[in-house]
Design a protein around this nucleic acid. Structure first.
Lengths: 107, 107
DNA sequence: ATTTATTATCGTAATATTGCAATATATAAA
DNA sequence: TTTATATATTGCAATATTACGATAATAAAT
């Protein structure tokens, strides 16, 4: 992102930005939509569905994990990635309140 | 962002990601919140409120303009930046439907 | 124990973002 | 017309992101 002067913003502003950033890539949108459709959750299914190299997908999964939107469960040598419904809901709530609170303007 | 293979994703996925990205920086969150509070809309007010250099703010305003979230109206030698309520609402709707449609998972 | 399959990590190239100083542009005021 | 003020643009340094090949790590199967 280049350096970002996080210290001059409120924790809430930084948190919101971080959450939006987690969704700011089409691959991560696609991954979440795929998991939501429940057509598969195994890492390899995701790799095949999205069409990016396995290490790239692994990196995107890591970013989604870092904001808590998904979690991985080991199933033998495979890993099932699942959406964390509570985090999903809490993002939805935070985004909703951001949009509800704002949007007014002068002209 | 580094190169992004936009061509392998759907227009809707790319659009969603682009919209999320517009909000993926605390300065842009702060700008939108400031405009929403209607304490000021003049570019210089924003610069003073946020506490980043004028060229930096100008750049962030440009990004918000590019997704249509704000628009600038010339007032003499000043410029009043206003939130575009329709675009605001349409983002809200798109995000809402993204979260409503998704969030299910296997485990 | 070796092989195979699955996922993660490392290293790196290409590109994008962030931030600012310097400068250009534009408009109003003197 | 000159000056002052407000905003945009340019150029650049520092850092982050995206993508992938190579490789490591893990666990099942042989």
């Amino acid at each position: 992102m280049g350096i970002s002067k996080t210290q001059i913003f409120s924790p809430s502003q930084n948190r919101l930005a971080r959450q939006f950033k987690a969704l700011a890539h089409p691959a991560r949108i696609a991954i979440l939509q795929f998991l939501s459709r429940q057509e598969g959750c195994i890492c390899n299914d995701i790799v095949e569905e999205i069409g990016l190299a396995q290490p790239t997908i692994s990196q995107h999964l890591k970013e989604l994990k870092q904001v808590g939107l998904i979690q991985g469960e080991v199933e033998g040598k495979k890993i099932c990635y699942c959406i964390n419904a509570e985090v999903w809901k809490s993002l939805q709530d935070e985004f909703h309140s951001f949009f509800e609170t704002g949007g007014n303007s002068c002209c």
